Amino acid sequence: QTVVIGDTTYHLNNPEAAQQIAKELAKKYGLKVVISGNTIKLK
C-alpha cells in the first residue's frame, strides 16, 4: 500500500493502517483522500 502526501511517499505493508492514517490526516488537515488501485493520495 502506497500513501502519497504532497511530495512524500510512504510504503505500508498494512492496507487498513494506511487507509486509517490517510483518513485521520485528511480530517486533521482538511485534505481530500483519493484512492486508486493500491495508492492513497492526500490532496
Rank of each mutant, 00 (worst) to 15 (best):
residue 29 Y to K: 04
residue 36 S to E: 14
residue 18 A to I: 12
residue 6 G to R: 04
residue 28 K to D: 03
residue 34 V to P: 00
residue 18 A to D: 01
residue 18 A to V: 08
residue 15 P to L: 13
residue 31 L to E: 05
residue 21 I to K: 08
residue 42 L to A: 01
residue 25 L to F: 04
residue 12 L to I: 13
residue 12 L to N: 02
residue 37 G to P: 02
residue 5 I to P: 01
residue 7 D to V: 10
residue 21 I to L: 15
residue 17 A to W: 12
residue 22 A to T: 03
residue 28 K to M: 07
residue 42 L to P: 00
residue 33 V to D: 00
residue 15 P to Y: 12
residue 19 Q to C: 14
residue 17 A to E: 13
residue 34 V to W: 06
residue 30 G to Y: 04
residue 40 I to R: 00
residue 6 G to T: 02
residue 32 K to S: 13
residue 26 A to I: 05
residue 38 N to L: 06
residue 18 A to N: 01
residue 11 H to I: 10
residue 41 K to R: 13
residue 41 K to V: 14
residue 21 I to R: 03
residue 23 K to H: 11
residue 30 G to M: 06
residue 10 Y to D: 03
residue 36 S to L: 10
residue 5 I to M: 06
residue 37 G to Q: 04
residue 6 G to W: 13
residue 31 L to W: 09
residue 18 A to H: 02
residue 27 K to C: 12
residue 6 G to L: 06
residue 31 L to V: 07
residue 33 V to T: 02
residue 26 A to R: 05
residue 2 T to F: 13
residue 28 K to S: 02
residue 25 L to Y: 02
residue 42 L to N: 01
residue 20 Q to M: 11
residue 11 H to Q: 07
residue 6 G to D: 03
residue 36 S to Y: 08
residue 8 T to E: 08
residue 40 I to T: 01
residue 21 I to F: 15
residue 29 Y to N: 06
residue 11 H to E: 08
residue 34 V to T: 09
residue 15 P to T: 10
residue 13 N to I: 08
residue 30 G to N: 06
residue 3 V to K: 02
residue 13 N to T: 10
residue 6 G to H: 08
residue 23 K to N: 13
residue 19 Q to D: 05
residue 11 H to M: 10
residue 18 A to T: 03
residue 36 S to V: 13
residue 38 N to I: 07
residue 40 I to H: 00
residue 41 K to S: 12
residue 32 K to T: 14
residue 22 A to R: 02
residue 39 T to H: 04
residue 27 K to W: 05
residue 12 L to D: 02
residue 1 Q to L: 15
residue 1 Q to W: 15
residue 17 A to R: 10
residue 20 Q to S: 08
residue 23 K to Q: 12
residue 29 Y to T: 06
residue 36 S to K: 10
residue 4 V to Q: 11
residue 36 S to M: 11
residue 2 T to P: 02
residue 39 T to E: 09
residue 37 G to L: 04
residue 11 H to D: 09
residue 19 Q to M: 15
residue 21 I to C: 15
residue 42 L to D: 00
residue 22 A to F: 10
residue 30 G to L: 05
residue 14 N to Q: 05
residue 2 T to E: 06
residue 32 K to F: 07
residue 26 A to P: 00
residue 32 K to M: 13
residue 25 L to W: 07
residue 21 I to W: 15
residue 7 D to I: 13
residue 12 L to Q: 03
residue 41 K to Q: 13
residue 7 D to Q: 11
residue 23 K to D: 10
residue 39 T to A: 04
residue 34 V to F: 09
residue 22 A to E: 01
residue 29 Y to E: 05
residue 2 T to Y: 13
residue 43 K to A: 12
residue 6 G to A: 05
residue 43 K to T: 14
residue 26 A to Y: 09
residue 8 T to G: 05
residue 38 N to S: 09
residue 23 K to A: 11
residue 28 K to T: 02
residue 1 Q to N: 12
residue 21 I to P: 00
residue 27 K to N: 07
residue 19 Q to R: 11
residue 34 V to L: 07
residue 30 G to R: 06
residue 3 V to L: 14
residue 17 A to I: 13
residue 33 V to H: 00
residue 3 V to N: 01
residue 11 H to F: 13
residue 7 D to P: 06
residue 10 Y to S: 03
residue 41 K to M: 14
residue 14 N to E: 07
residue 14 N to S: 14
residue 40 I to Q: 00
residue 21 I to V: 08
residue 37 G to Y: 02
residue 3 V to P: 01
residue 20 Q to D: 06
residue 32 K to W: 09
residue 39 T to I: 13
residue 22 A to I: 12
residue 26 A to E: 08
residue 19 Q to F: 15
residue 16 E to I: 10
residue 29 Y to G: 06
residue 14 N to L: 11
residue 37 G to K: 03
residue 18 A to K: 01
residue 6 G to V: 05
residue 16 E to V: 10
residue 37 G to R: 02
residue 8 T to P: 05
residue 9 T to F: 10
residue 23 K to M: 12
residue 43 K to I: 15
residue 9 T to G: 02
residue 2 T to D: 08
residue 1 Q to A: 14
residue 29 Y to H: 09
residue 16 E to W: 10
residue 20 Q to V: 07
residue 41 K to N: 09
residue 36 S to A: 08
residue 33 V to G: 00
residue 13 N to P: 14
residue 5 I to Q: 01
residue 12 L to H: 05
residue 36 S to R: 06
residue 27 K to T: 07
residue 4 V to I: 13
residue 13 N to V: 07
residue 40 I to D: 00
residue 9 T to D: 04
residue 27 K to M: 09
residue 19 Q to G: 05
residue 13 N to A: 13
residue 23 K to E: 12
residue 35 I to Q: 05
residue 34 V to Q: 08
residue 17 A to P: 01
residue 25 L to T: 00
residue 15 P to F: 14
residue 34 V to K: 02
residue 2 T to S: 08
residue 4 V to S: 07
residue 38 N to R: 04
residue 14 N to F: 10
residue 2 T to C: 14
residue 9 T to N: 05
residue 35 I to G: 01
residue 20 Q to Y: 09
residue 20 Q to A: 11
residue 5 I to N: 02
residue 12 L to C: 15
residue 2 T to Q: 08
residue 9 T to L: 08
residue 25 L to V: 03
residue 14 N to D: 12
residue 30 G to Q: 05
residue 3 V to T: 02
residue 8 T to K: 14
residue 22 A to Y: 04
residue 39 T to V: 12
residue 40 I to E: 00
residue 34 V to S: 06
residue 6 G to N: 06
residue 40 I to A: 00
residue 6 G to F: 13
residue 14 N to P: 08
residue 20 Q to E: 08
residue 37 G to E: 04
residue 28 K to L: 11
residue 26 A to F: 10
residue 42 L to T: 01
residue 28 K to C: 12
residue 37 G to S: 03
residue 41 K to A: 10
residue 12 L to E: 04
residue 29 Y to M: 05
residue 4 V to P: 01
residue 26 A to D: 05
residue 12 L to P: 05
residue 28 K to F: 08
residue 5 I to K: 02
residue 10 Y to M: 12
residue 23 K to W: 11
residue 34 V to R: 01
residue 27 K to I: 09
residue 24 E to W: 15
residue 2 T to R: 10
residue 38 N to D: 12
residue 13 N to Y: 09
residue 18 A to M: 09
residue 3 V to E: 01
residue 4 V to T: 10
residue 19 Q to H: 12
residue 27 K to E: 12
residue 12 L to K: 03
residue 38 N to A: 08
residue 9 T to E: 09
residue 41 K to H: 14
residue 32 K to E: 12
residue 9 T to S: 08
residue 20 Q to F: 10
residue 38 N to K: 08
residue 43 K to C: 15
residue 18 A to C: 12
residue 8 T to R: 14
residue 22 A to G: 02
residue 43 K to P: 02
residue 17 A to Q: 12
residue 11 H to K: 06
residue 32 K to N: 09
residue 4 V to E: 05
residue 7 D to N: 14
